[in-house]
Amino acid sequence: MQAGGGVKEFVPKIVVFCCNWCSYAGADMAGVSRMQYPPNIRIIKVMCSGRIDPIFVLMSFMEGTDGVLVTGCHIGDCHYINGNYKTQNRFEILSEMMNELGLEKERLRLEWISATEGEKFANVVKEVVEQVKKLGPSPLKPVIE
């Protein structure tokens, strides 16, 4: 186990939800521009950030990930008119629930990233990884392992 021994460095795993049109393309743009960021994230693509059921976020924590980054198009840019407004509403509720569930709020983040913002994608990932490293392993982790 990574957390217990105190010998091994904590290597967080973070789930990133991306929408097909903006943030997934932004993540590709980071690659095309060779922007380097820490290898701790695992991207899951959906068509619209509005598809991201809050259960997916909770499930990610239940399965042992240390952080979740939800991304989508900038407000006003949603390919599906207003899907990201719904994402924002759902995120706010989820964020409120985090403490109740015994998780730090800072493990969950929402960011709008456009198809051209490869640099922003890389920077956000760096920040999230840094933040989660500071927090240490998810408290839910020992429960499930």
Binding site: M47, C48, G50, R51, D53, P54, Y80, G83, K86, R90
Partner: peptide
């Protein structure tokens, strides 16, 4: 159009 936001709700 297949955004899936109804499914999430």
């Amino acid at each position: 159009k297949g955004c899936g936001t109804c499914v999430a709700a």
